[in-house]
Design a protein around this nucleic acid. Structure first.
Length: 425
RNA sequence: GUGGGUAUAGCGUAGUUGGUUAACGCGCCAGAUUGUGGCUCUGGAGAGCGUGGGUUCGAGUCCCACUACUCACCCCA
């Protein structure tokens, strides 16, 4: 079989790349509409960044990172998520000294997690992410949620549910932690094995357990939302007011607990139902103390990540139409000895701003037409003895069959006229 | 990391209780007289059956191991 792409990776082939490009264009437009500008950060970072940023008790850090020593004995990790790298970039370049907030986005950032792949879960995937540094008000949170929601719904996603929660701040979360532990303490015996461990490390995770018996146990558990401090409660209230005002449907789900330790206050997920279960396409939240944790000033921030492969997968399953660009505007065929003429005409048409090509495989005229047809070229040009003698070219509209003759200099204009392609500036 | 399923030309599949030169559809290439495609017809190229062992006179068909893919769990975008 030869060498294959490594487990959990995928090639994007020429026949499908237009889908990515279409999505990218939509994402850039959405980000720009709210003043987010692109940033590009390295694919790998020092491992320490993720230990301190993401949290060393999280599953991502404990068992899913691609970590290795480079030849200089530095511990390097391929990015397992996008936020930590963006935060590092923000700090390293003192972007907090510039007018805040600093809004940045990244597109097609490769993300690596060593997991067992399955539908919608790869070892290398790509994310579109937005980060807003230096904004503490809930309007910033709302803006991000709206932006993601509108982007996805404008792409045609249906059955999109927006789930939000607040997980408090360092002031109120410890209070909740101890309350939750008190509540769960007597029930440890009935929990699943995973949750017994979670109880010690991060009791919040028990709420997130998918096991029926654990869900039963936590049914009447105290809710973080009842114990938020005044600041967090007001923040969450105002966020909801913004979302309501904007008219987007959302659900408050007190069980959302993200797998990254840096979150504070707002956390959210966008989930769509597919034929085989629910898929999270976008998730994020506020991380008011991450910058400080990795050695910077204590500035608030909020952001989200969106999985591009997942969006594409959903676009497919929901039969969302993505326009496929034609290979060519015009395909130049030639007969007998007129290859050089065809070459010159092709170059001329390209200089005139058209997508043009000719046969490079020594095919018969008939086969050249068959090929042109397969590429869906709307117009085919023919150069035979007659045309070569007169310095003209015959153009055929492949949809209507209409044929006309044109001088070389007028060929590009004629092709445009036949297909209504706008002339280049 | 744990458990289940699968593994035959570029793609999708068929291969009966193990037995001659592994079949079909799509795709690809070439033809169907004279300078032209899309429909149709004809022909052609292309796999030795994931890899390595084993059983057998003989294995794509049976056994073992490995690998890959896939699904579920865990977790997540």
């Amino acid at each position: 079989m030869g060498i294959q792409a490594p487990r959990g990776t995928r090639d994007v082939l020429p026949a499908e790349s237009y889908r990515w490009q279409y999505l990218e264009a939509c994402m850039r437009k959405a980000a720009a509409s709210a003043g987010y500008r692109e940033t590009r950060t390295p694919v790998f970072e020092h491992t320490e960044l993720f230990l301190r940023g993401v949290g060393d008790t999280t599953d991502i850090v404990q068992k899913e990172m691609y970590t290795f020593l480079d030849k200089g004995d530095r511990s390097i990790t391929l990015k397992p998520e996008g936020t930590a790298g963006a935060a590092r970039c923000f700090l390293e370049h003192n972007l907090y000294a510039e007018p805040l907030p600093c809004k940045m986005y990244y597109l097609n950032a490769p993300i690596f997690r060593y997991e067992n792949p399955q539908s919608g879960r790869l070892r290398e995937h790509h994310q579109f992410g937005l980060e807003c540094f230096g904004a503490q008000e809930p309007t910033a949170d709302a803006e991000l949620i709206l932006l993601a929601y509108r982007l996805l719904s404008e792409l045609g996603m249906r059955n999109l549910s927006v789930n939000i929660n607040s997980i408090g701040c360092p002031k109120c979360r410890p209070v909740y932690h101890s309350r939750l532990k008190e509540y769960l303490a007597g029930k440890i015996g009935c929990m699943c094995d995973d949750c017994k461990g979670r109880f010690e490390r991060n009791p919040l995770r028990v709420l997130d357990c998918k096991q029926k018996k654990c869900q039963e146990l936590t049914k009447d558990a105290p809710s973080m939302l009842d114990l938020l401090c005044d600041e967090c409660r007001d923040h969450f209230q105002e966020l909801q007011a913004c979302l309501k005002d904007a008219g987007i449907p959302y659900t408050v789900d007190p069980r959302i607990v993200r797998g990254l330790d840096y979150y504070t206050k707002t956390v959210f997920e966008m989930i769509t139902a597919t034929k085989d279960g629910n898929l999270t396409v976008c998730a994020g939240g506020r991380y008011d103390h991450l910058l400080q944790q990795i050695g910077g000033p204590d500035l608030p921030a909020v952001g989200f990540g969106m999985g591009i492969e997942r969006v594409l997968m959903l676009a497919e399953s929901e039969s969302i139409q993505i326009p496929e660009p034609a290979w060519y505007d015009v395909f130049v065929t030639y007969m007998g000895t007129h290859r050089a003429d065809a070459f010159r005409l092709t170059q001329l048409l390209r200089q005139e701003g058209l997508k043009a090509d000719m046969d490079h495989c020594g095919r018969s005229l008939k086969a050249q037409f068959k090929y042109a047809n397969k590429t869906k070229a709307p117009v085919t040009a023919v150069i035979g003895d007659e045309e070569a003698a007169g310095g003209t070219v015959k153009l055929k509209n492949m949809n209507t069959g209409e044929e006309r003759s044109a001088a070389w200099e007028a060929a590009a204009a004629a092709v445009r006229e036949m297909t209504e392609i706008k002339a280049k500036e």
